[in-house]
Write a protein that binds this DNA or RNA. Sequence first.
DNA 1: CAGCATCCCGGTGGATACTG
DNA 2: CAGTATCCACCGGGATGCTG
Lengths: 123, 123
Amino acid sequence: MTSTHEEVGYLPPSKPVEHTPISAASGVEEVIRMLEGRWKLVILFHLFGGKLLRFSDLERAIPAISQKMLIQQLRQMEADGIVTRLVHHQVPPKVEYGLTDWGQSLCPSLDALLKWAAARPGS
Amino acid sequence: MTSTHEEVGYLPPSKPVEHTPISAASGVEEVIRMLEGRWKLVILFHLFGGKLLRFSDLERAIPAISQKMLIQQLRQMEADGIVTRLVHHQVPPKVEYGLTDWGQSLCPSLDALLKWAAARPGS
DNA sequence: CAGCATCCCGGTGGATACTG
DNA sequence: CAGTATCCACCGGGATGCTG
């Protein structure tokens, strides 16, 4: 694919839109809002499979993330109904994070994304 | 904030991980890198369906985006092999953007994301 | 028309220190 | 252990003006 300046052998703009992506754009914004941020997807992938992870587990699993970001993203996803927060009040505090059913249902879609990335031409 | 403190009636962590999301984490970063940014997905959704849109078409379709962001995101996706850039050298310049086959193959996955968002409990 | 260059602001997110 | 609080650097991204 030589990016610029090919002589154009393209033809008919007579192709009708079969997908109306524009109308979908509204939902797109919502998805972006809920999943954007450097860490949301990374966290989600660590939670898939119904696992319950403690705050410190996640910190260890994602060494590059700061506490501030970890808690912030977790809280946002909790507010969005994607992750659950389970507090055990005991002397050394223990909090476990997991996925709601709805959050877990995101797994296939994200997996598809992964497969897509893996299928990149010129591997 | 008492959003918390359920007494924990959670049971068996006997659920074996059936998905090994951690190993997937590597690919996740890649996906994020390619799709992140305020506008990438929005642009993509306007390009799905095999449509070729001119720069000005996209500007009109996404009024909130600035020229700078539009061209920047398009270029990045072009570099990633997601979008194509078709230059017609004629007196009033004309450039059309579309999707590569690989880029087009992202459509089902993103659609799944949309459906997921639409299925949010408490609609 | 389709961009590039420049300036600049605000928010995102990192580092660090402190608390229940 | 699981956060909260603060400070601050950086850069994503908007506005404007100019060019081929």
